[in-house]
Design a protein around this nucleic acid. Sequence first.
DNA 1: CACCAGTCTAGACCGGTGGTCGAATTCGTC
DNA 2: GACGAATTCGACCACCGGTCTAGACTGGTG
Lengths: 205, 205
Amino acid sequence: MVRPRFAKLPPAQQQAILQAALDEFARHGFHDASLNRVIETAGISKGSMYYYFDGKAELYAHVASTQIGELFAQVGPPPQLDTGDADRFWSVIEDYYLRLMKALLASPQRAALFRGWATASKDPAFQRAQGELEQASVPWIEQAVAAGQRVDAVRKDLPASLLIAVVLGMGEAMDLWMLSQDPDDEGLPTVVGSLVSMIRGAVSA
Amino acid sequence: MVRPRFAKLPPAQQQAILQAALDEFARHGFHDASLNRVIETAGISKGSMYYYFDGKAELYAHVASTQIGELFAQVGPPPQLDTGDADRFWSVIEDYYLRLMKALLASPQRAALFRGWATASKDPAFQRAQGELEQASVPWIEQAVAAGQRVDAVRKDLPASLLIAVVLGMGEAMDLWMLSQDPDDEGLPTVVGSLVSMIRGAVSA
DNA sequence: CACCAGTCTAGACCGGTGGTCGAATTCGTC
DNA sequence: GACGAATTCGACCACCGGTCTAGACTGGTG
């Protein structure tokens, strides 16, 4: 975790550090980002950086969770999923996915940060600090799978861990593909519709 | 590419280098593997290593392509896919997938090496040297998708690049999940059957 | 024999990395 | 002002992948 001391810094300096870190992580991804460049850009010394953050991974985790928070603040909380039948389930998923992607495409730097997520998630140094972030995304997917099974939208003959792993893998591949295509706002709904139809095909009963 | 000089080394020393590199890459993945540890284990100097290999990426590429070669020698070449209808297509896929996974589970070190592939494929230093390896896997998937479309086993309304990206993502997630489950030989066919059914659901028409 | 070009090895060295640490400085409070 | 805690600083550490030079060894030639 970020150390509590950080909150006591003048907001301007907090912002300088976070902005420098966001720039660096968005541009280079987790592993190739340089802490030395961050402290140089932010105008602080290495000692200060390690006084406020336990290390590179903690800094990344803090930046990423801040960005996630802002993204959710824009898009709104995840919707209720088990309020209808299977078709309803999937159309709610598609709608929410579409809104998320729209918001993401609207802020390229944030998109670049999340694009580097896949890389970061395989880095041992990062995985130790990932706990907090994971608890914001994986449980939601777990609940979504459970809700889908409740309304007969998701098959029940496979372990939930496998369904989740596959959905995450598909999502990652789709996100990377979409971000590399840079679709306009008109084409986006069609693309998202196709992606959700693929997920539906993979996991539905 | 590996330099031709390497082939002129005494086989024992070739083996020492390749074994040390395989151990290191399998244990740590591409990025976190240390060339210094490899040369120490192999008992050669850094100068010699760079005399025989252009760098870390070339060494990894050589080790990996050797392992791929041995794997294919065990399992046999990819099968002909467009010799029947859709059901035939998918059963051939499932059969081949099953044989590949069986062979992979039989040699844990090789499995660990390939598990690190995903990590490696995102490393810029690695991508430059990936050409040779890529030409052995991606084109095969492209052909498989094209063959599947020919026999109406794969939907034609989406770009091939998306289908391939999603299938690769699913495959990666499934492989990781399977290797983490460490299934016995009895359970394997069932699991592989489920996985192929998920891929089929995602990409079929 | 002497000489030489080519092959090969050793390891010092380079700029970079993330991370540590003790000293110096600033700040809050008596 | 004085004292202790909070904060800042940058030198320093071990390690990384990669470069480079000095020299040992080899086989061939006059």
